[in-house]
């Protein structure tokens, strides 16, 4: 296990609001090795981003509250760090890329200056060295004419270009872990492919581990080594990417994969998952998926299924995963 970088155990993140307690995460456990890319897949609101923000200690508190048995990262338990120690890790050892590059960059500073600021703080270099390094990073992420672009403001650049700036800024301190929260969702499809290729190349080169948050199974297949499927604040299934696509065991994963149209088949209607995503203020008892599951049985309604090993490195949280093939 010397290669282990991150181990999250029993992560519960709750938000205390006027309407009630939102149980956004209900016992998330995951592990990540160095230089490994883990895909975190699920619908909007299933807790993917909350998982990422919890790991980085960015959940606003109040109203949020993060509890876990441990969030172990590279030899330290992040939960035991104070504010200042946590800040030193953020951006330096764990970096995070957000979905909307246009709004995640500060509108009133040139992009080069913003990148240089991050470098300056984590590498303790002078302003000029920071700027030089920023331009180097811009060159590395394939920004044409990096010198000129570094003086531009975010609104003067395209979405793809802004996301390149973002990637440059985040990788500048050579973090061990990069959390990418839907980094390509806001971009055009062609630009998406370019950015994905770029990220894939860079993380391989720097041996950066990645948690790649997405709702796009195609993207997962493209770049992830392993994948964890989330539903309503729970990881329902996790395995190597290939295994998941070939042999999905959880009913939710199966329905998701069935909802992807295939090129060779002609169908009029795509299969859908009946019902809607449950409220996390008042989540269903037992297995959170049972009201929408065609295989649901009486134990599913009372007891919460724990992860069961189906085969090597393939876990599924379901009582009836072996039914209904």
């Amino acid at each position: 296990m010397g290669d282990l970088l991150l181990r999250v155990k029993d992560l519960y993140t709750h938000f205390y609001t006027f309407e009630g307690t939102v149980k956004a995460l209900d016992g998330i456990s995951l592990e990540l090795k160095r230089a490994e890319t883990l895909g975190l897949v699920g619908e909007t609101g299933c807790g993917k981003s909350v998982t990422a923000l919890s790991i980085l200690g960015l959940i606003p508190c109040p109203p949020g509250k993060v509890e876990a048995a441990e969030i172990w990262f590279d030899g330290v338990d992040l939960l035991k760090l104070d504010k200042e120690e946590m800040r030193a890790i953020r951006g330096k050892k764990i970096a995070m890329i957000f979905q909307e590059p246009a709004t995640a960059l500060n509108p009133v500073f040139p992009v080069g200056e913003q990148t240089a600021e991050i470098i300056r703080i984590h590498k303790q270099v002078s302003k000029r060295e920071g700027m030089q390094k920023a331009v180097e990073m811009f060159h590395l992420v394939g920004i044409p004419d990096p010198d000129r672009v570094s003086k531009k403001y975010p609104h003067e650049l395209s979405g793809g270009m802004n996301q390149r700036v973002m990637i440059a800024a985040k990788l500048s301190s050579n973090p061990a872990l990069l959390v990418a929260d839907e980094p390509t969702t806001a971009l055009d499809v062609t630009v998406q492919a370019q950015i994905l290729q770029l990220m894939k190349g860079l993380v391989q080169r720097f041996r950066t581990a990645v948690i790649f948050i997405t709702h796009d199974l195609g993207v997962v297949a493209e770049i992830c080594d392993r994948v964890a499927v989330m539903y309503a604040g729970v990881i329902v299934e996790s395995s190597k990417t290939r295994v998941l696509f070939e042999n999905p065991r959880h009913p939710y994963t199966r329905s998701l994969l069935q909802a992807i149209p295939k090129l060779v088949e002609r169908i009029d209607r795509l299969p859908v998952i009946s019902g809607t995503v449950p409220s996390l203020i008042n989540p269903p008892s037992g297995c959170r998926f049972h009201p929408r599951c065609s295989l649901a049985d009486s134990p599913c309604k009372v007891e919460k299924p724990s992860p069961t090993s189906v085969e090597a490195e393939h876990w599924v949280s379901c009582f009836r995963y072996d039914q209904g093939d």
């Binding site: 980085l56 960015l58 800040r87 951006g91 995070m96 957000f98 500060n106 991050i118 703080i121």
Partner: peptide, 12 residues
């Protein structure tokens, strides 16, 4: 977003 982003970057 950019404030949360700056926090994620570990800026003081």
């Amino acid at each position: 977003d950019y404030i949360r982003n700056a926090m994620a970057d570990g800026l003081p």
